[in-house]
Amino acid sequence: MPMPLIAGNWKMNGSLSLVETFGQALADADLPSRLEVALMVPFPYLESASRALAGTRAVLGAQTLSDQPAGAFTGEVSGEMLREVGATLVLVGHSERRTLFGEDDSAVLARVRRALEVGLTPVLCLGETLEERDDGRGETVVIGQLEAVLDALEAEQRHRLVIAYEPVWAIGTGRTATPEQAQAIHAALRRRLAAYDDGLAEKTQLLYGGSMKADNAAELLAQPDIDGGLVGGASLKIDDFLAICQSAG
């Protein structure tokens, strides 16, 4: 069974003082022994977060990266830059990147490849809209997003990804997929991973990322194919985030 992972995605939120607060709290926290923790903070806070988290169990992640190594791409950030300031994980294909910034499957694949090239672990985000779910296409859409990346990778590269299922209709809306709904998609993802490689299905961390909170985390994390959480709003509240971490132990 994969090691549980709780990853906090701050999105375009936070402050330097919040970074320091989290660093101190995580240094003092008595976390479950079998648990990985990560924080994905905005680009300006990465270096400060790297220092603040240095004495903790948490690792540093970024929220996206360019598919280019360098050049005249104003406003972009390269994987090499992320590595230099201490990031080890990076979100790729988050629904907000897909819908707000037009990143399609080919753009997501390019960013996954770039992350792998520089030694970052891509957290590949997958998810369906409410319309797609209501049309009965939810599983098909999610599996298609997975295949668009994995079909183009070498076998060894597939083993270096984390997968996060985040139903778009449950992000920032206050709605959450029921544990049964989330488990059904996670089980489908696990089956598809097994079709590539039995070892891939056994070892890949499958995270749930749709309004996971302190009061629903335990029930979601108890599902057999949910290995952790990609936490949004609750990751900005240290007590809530730590409670979710405890639920994963």
Score class of each variant (00 low, 15 high):
52 A>R: 02
57 R>C: 03
25 A>C: 01
28 D>P: 01
62 A>Y: 13
17 S>R: 12
65 L>Q: 04
53 L>Q: 07
63 Q>A: 09
43 F>E: 13
37 V>W: 03
38 A>P: 05
14 G>S: 10
40 M>H: 13
22 F>T: 06
43 F>T: 09
9 N>T: 12
59 V>H: 15
44 P>A: 15
24 Q>P: 00
61 G>E: 06
5 L>Y: 14
40 M>S: 11
35 L>E: 07
33 S>A: 15
34 R>N: 15
51 R>L: 07
5 L>F: 07
16 L>H: 15
37 V>G: 02
32 P>N: 14
25 A>I: 00
9 N>R: 12
66 S>H: 10
13 N>C: 11
26 L>K: 01
52 A>T: 02
29 A>P: 04
34 R>K: 14
27 A>D: 11
42 P>Q: 09
53 L>N: 08
10 W>V: 03
11 K>L: 15
13 N>W: 06
59 V>Y: 14
51 R>T: 10
26 L>I: 01
74 T>P: 09
65 L>V: 13
18 L>G: 02
15 S>I: 01
12 M>P: 08
40 M>T: 07
34 R>H: 15
4 P>E: 12
8 G>C: 10
48 S>M: 05
42 P>T: 11
17 S>Q: 13
68 Q>E: 13
10 W>A: 02
16 L>S: 15
45 Y>K: 06
66 S>Q: 13
57 R>V: 00
49 A>L: 04
60 L>A: 06
33 S>R: 13
13 N>Y: 14
62 A>M: 11
7 A>T: 14
4 P>M: 08
59 V>Q: 15
9 N>C: 14
65 L>Y: 07
9 N>D: 12
21 T>E: 06
53 L>H: 03
38 A>H: 09
58 A>H: 00
7 A>R: 03
